[in-house]
């Protein structure tokens, strides 16, 4: 196996008494799409800033293409494309000017950038908007422009912090499609998200983070297989009844999680379980059988839901 592009060992970041990242280890291989999944405050963004060579660490080692980002900041940043959580486009400039000047920050020649802009505008589906000030763009367009901007320097690694947070479903799907194309082109992606569907769509491999620590690591399918059952039966009996019936239901499945509004029953065959419950004389107000997701993995590992 070739050497990983990113190698992190025992990474810790403290802000005063608060430990934001607590001794994490992971590697990212070339061409891989790697995700940090966890709720807000899990330490994902702090980790991303350290990878982006814009934040120092308290202890541990980080190597990006064999270089310590803390010692070789500008050199490491020359390898990276960064898409921050909040779009920080240059509002005083137009769409194409934003791409142009960002390339200049990397020292790229004007001629190179001019050609690159055409390619990126097409990629971001913003050809029509090239001479529009970025203030006038929709949230989805700004996001696509921010990603396009991160690609001006043809980076080895693209870092995306919560790429679709705050976007409507349609804009998210367009964005996923664009990111998927990058993945197909072999760009190494590192992204943070608290959306399990996003992680499932985009990540080859991911770590589940909570309170600054890594709880589990693997492919989305692998994690689901390891930490959850094939199917989940969600049942509601009404807020008061849920607790009453819970002990009896727990004996009928492999594992059960009691949420404030519903019960999650883990099983290999959801329909069969539902029939069994009905047979036992309990009638759920609503019921839903679905496949296990990363949300269930997170619930299993931490006892909490991803979005609270």
């Amino acid at each position: 196996m070739s050497k990983p592009l990113i190698s992190v060992r025992g990474l810790t970041k403290k802000f005063g008494d608060f430990t934001a990242v607590d001794g994490i280890d992971f590697d990212v291989a070339k061409g891989e799409s790697f995700g940090l999944l966890g709720p807000n405050g899990a330490g994902k963004s702090t980790t991303m800033r350290i990878l982006a060579a814009t934040s120092t660490r308290t202890s541990g080692t980080v190597e990006i293409l064999d270089k310590d980002p803390e010692l070789f900041g500008p050199l490491v940043r020359a390898h990276l494309g960064v898409v921050p959580q909040q779009d920080n486009l240059d509002n005083e400039l137009t769409v194409s000017e934003n791409l142009f000047i960002y390339g200049r920050y990397f020292g790229l020649s004007k001629k190179f950038i001019k050609n690159k802009i055409e390619e990126l505008l097409e990629f971001a589906q913003l050809e029509e908007k090239r001479d529009v000030k970025v203030e006038a763009l929709s949230g989805g367009m700004k996001r696509r422009l921010t990603i396009a901007r991160g690609l001006v320097s043809e980076p080895d690694i693209l870092l995306l912090d919560e790429p679709t947070t705050g976007l409507d479903p349609q804009a998210r799907h367009i964005l996923w499609d664009r990111l998927f194309r990058l993945k197909e082109q072999g760009v190494t992606l590192v992204l943070t998200t608290h959306f399990m569907d996003e992680a499932e769509q985009l990540c080859d491999r991911l770590v589940v983070m909570d309170k600054g620590a890594i709880m589990a690591e693997g492919s989305p399918a692998g994690l689901i297989k390891q930490y959850s059952s094939k199917e989940v039966l969600e049942v509601r009996f009404g807020s008061d009844r849920n607790k009453e019936v819970a002990p009896q239901l727990a004996t009928m499945c492999e594992r059960m999680e009691t949420l404030p509004d519903r019960l999650l029953m883990y099983t290999e065959d959801g329909e069969a379980l539902l029939e069994k419950i009905t047979h036992a004389g309990m009638h759920a107000t609503t019921s839903l059988v679905r496949r296990s997701s990363l949300e269930d993995v997170f619930l299993r590992l931490t006892g909490r839901t991803l979005i609270e």
Binding site: L71, S109, E154, D156
Partner: peptide, 22 residues
């Protein structure tokens, strides 16, 4: 030249990349 080649050739330090004109 790529962004990385430029960064290497400039011997950029943590404080200065030699590009204030941009």
């Amino acid at each position: 030249r790529t962004a990385v080649e430029i960064a290497v050739s400039r011997k950029s330090s943590a404080m200065y990349a030699g590009r204030p004109h941009v």
